[in-house]
């Protein structure tokens, strides 16, 4: 499979979205809305759930599964209020000492008029800074598209995992081809050059794990099992050690 085939697969409509992971990995999800500043961004879903008996805060970028839903969710392209809602819930998790689990699936933060007016760059910057010292464990899982800063804003974590056919990139292959080569047709070359596949991420140390995708039921089960295996260790780690390891995790790049 070429890198571009993986991009197509990561974007494909049949692929489970954030909500499916929440439903299948956790029990009793209770959605919480709004950033307390401007609005509730439907492109990001957040709330509380149980992993076995462990309360966790869950944040997921949601693309929607049918046309109507996709429109409502802005195709999973968050506005600043989405990132601010995510941060609000994460700070809440810190207060109540709950771990945070994020599911990331976006072509990128929304490039719109309102998004700029309300400080898209500032919202992402604040999330990155806050996440770097959030005093509770954070695990982020890239389930489809990991589009640049809009994905990273939910992926500055203690561990980052990626689905076998998900991608993670600083720019879309389309954007790269048109900016760099002024030739949108070279999108396949761009996908290859950017080294954006899950396997590339593992080789470069950007992710700790690649989750196989034989079928998605087994992927959900594996994520559930892995979370149950990894989270207790992170919870038991003294917070200063946890934050030092998180700092060094990104310091190495």
């Amino acid at each position: 499979m070429s890198a571009y085939d993986k991009v197509i697969l990561a974007r494909s409509k049949g692929r489970p979205t954030g909500a499916a992971y929440i439903e299948n990995v956790f029990d009793g999800f209770l959605e919480l809305h709004g950033d307390r500043r401007f609005a509730d961004d439907p492109a990001i879903v957040g709330g509380l759930a149980l992993l076995g008996n462990l309360p966790v805060t869950v944040v997921a970028i949601e693309k929607g599964t049918d046309t109507k839903e996709r429109l409502r969710r802005n195709f999973g392209m968050p506005n600043p209020e989405g990132y601010r809602k995510a941060l609000r819930l994460m700070k809440q998790a810190e207060k109540f000492q709950r771990p945070v689990v994020c599911f990331v699936d976006t072509s990128g933060a929304y490039c719109g008029l309102g998004a700029e007016e309300r400080g898209q760059g500032q919202a992402i910057a604040e999330n990155l800074m806050e996440l770097s010292t959030l005093r509770t464990p954070v695990i982020s899982i890239l389930i489809g598209e990991g589009g640049s800063g809009g994905a990273l804003a939910l992926a500055l974590a203690d561990q980052v995992w990626i689905l076998e056919n998900a991608v993670y990139s600083v720019i879309s292959p389309e954007g790269c081809a048109s900016i760099l080569w002024k030739d949108p047709k070279r999108v396949k070359d761009a996908a290859e050059c950017l080294k954006l596949t899950a396997q590339d991420m593992e080789a470069m140390g950007v992710v700790e794990r690649v989750i196989p995708e034989e079928n998605f039921d087994s992927a959900y089960a594996q994520i559930k099992e892995l979370l149950a295996e990894v989270l207790p260790g992170l919870i038991a780690t003294p917070t200063d050690e946890l934050l030092e390891a998180r700092y060094q995790r990104f310091r190495k790049f």
Binding site: L128, Y168, M204, Y247, F250
Partner: peptide
Amino acid sequence: GARMQEGIHSLMQMAKTSAAVRRHGE
């Protein structure tokens, strides 16, 4: 913006610098 030619390494700089800024602020 990003240095596209460095791919994901470029993106990781956003995380790395933000964390260093945070420590300075703390």
